[in-house]
Simulated scan of single mutants.
Amino acid sequence: MTDIAKAAGCSQAAVSFVLNETPGTRISQQTRDRVLEAARMLGYVAPAYAPASVVSAYSGLDGVIGFAVDQLATSPEAIVAIEGARQASWNTGNVLLVAQTLSDPVMEPRAIKALTSGGISALIYMTIYTREVELPAYIYELNIPTVLLNCYTTDYAFPAVVPSEIAGGQSSTRHLVAHGHHRIATITGEIWMQAAQDRLTGYRRALATADIPFDPELVIEGDWSASAGYSATMRLLALKEPPTAIFCQNDRTAIGCYEALKDAGLRIPHDMSVVGYDDEEISRHLVPPLTTSVLPHHAMGQWAIEHLDPASRPGKRRYPIAKLECSLVKRHSVAAPPTTAPRVVHDVQSTV
């Protein structure tokens, strides 16, 4: 919808109102026509809401679906996933009821009990950080279908969906290789996190596939922040042989990377190519706009609703973990490497 808003010259809210046919909004017919034409040109298909007379694939649900998530405020991913689930549930006439649990050992079971006592007919259990979870016994004892979103259990007792992070890291790095880069650095997140580990694995696989030797000095651990992106980029520029491209493992790191490169007098992408990850809103407005990968939380929310099987119960079968693609969004931050090494205009010792 952000892309449609840009093409139509209006706000994202206006796009939402038009595509969802929200009653009571005073949007001119001219604006409506522009939005619909932009949506058509971009290949966007608005959700087709099922008539009440149509029996849904999961019509065994009784109208209210619970959504338990550990964190709502730390990042936009939870809200995006909830919106995907909300759209899919509304398409089938179901309401979504959301609770934040903070993974608190006392309050989480109380929150889930409040959802179940409120009459939910299914549960989606989400974590902000992709990870393996050990679910407490009371989740297994729920007599309703349950889906895990952005997490999974080792016993595969529940349907689960996560981003395909290894493939995402591989695609990001391969994009730089395809432009002729051979000295490619990466700035990771906190390496104890599975997302950072998987994106690094994808990076290494792409290098290996292209017969590019792995160089550990080109891997800098960050903490997902812009400050870490800035200091890591300065460290990379201070190397005897700096990279010609940097894969930042999230967009906030890329913001810091942009600032460091500009402070060093380097142009993006003429002197240094940069790729991000997450496709946050800011990535569209950086100069130049940032090539990045989409975290598919919206699609994951929809997937979770679509895989609530009224007949399923924990322990009846093993469910494979579904992995959704982190598709690459190509913008203007990547080009062929410079023919000569870029000249840094001032000292680039590591700094924050």
Score class of each variant (00 low, 15 high):
P47N: 10
A78R: 03
L36S: 05
V55N: 06
Q29N: 15
A73F: 07
A81I: 07
M41E: 14
R34Y: 00
A81G: 07
V95I: 12
R86V: 02
I79G: 09
A48K: 12
A57L: 15
V69T: 04
V64A: 08
V106Y: 04
A99Y: 05
L36Q: 13
D33Y: 01
A81V: 10
R34Q: 01
D70I: 06
A85P: 02
N94L: 05
V95M: 15
S53E: 14
T31W: 01
V35L: 12
L102I: 08
A73N: 12
Q30M: 06
L42D: 03
V55E: 14
Q29A: 14
D104K: 13
W90Y: 13
Y49H: 12
V69C: 11
L61G: 00
D70E: 13
Q100G: 05
R32P: 05
D33N: 13
E83H: 13
R40E: 13
F67W: 00
S59Y: 02
Q87R: 12
V98S: 00
M41T: 15
A85L: 06
G84I: 01
D104S: 12
L72K: 09
I65Y: 02
V54H: 07
E37L: 12
S56C: 06
I65V: 14
P47Q: 03
V98F: 01
T74D: 13
P76L: 06
A78I: 05
A85V: 02
P51T: 03
G84F: 04
T92H: 06
A46H: 09
L42G: 09
P51Q: 04
I65G: 01
P47S: 12
A68L: 02
L61W: 00
G66P: 04
L72N: 02
A50H: 04
V35D: 06
A73M: 13
D33H: 04
A73S: 13
T31V: 15
P76S: 02
M41I: 15
Y58M: 12
F67G: 00
A48E: 14
A85W: 02
M41D: 15
P47G: 07
Q29C: 08
S56P: 04
S89K: 00
E37T: 14
V55F: 10
E37W: 03
A88W: 03
A50N: 11
Q29L: 11
T31Y: 00
L97H: 10
Y49G: 07
Y58G: 10
V69I: 09
G66Q: 05
A46P: 05
Q87G: 03
A50C: 08
L72E: 04
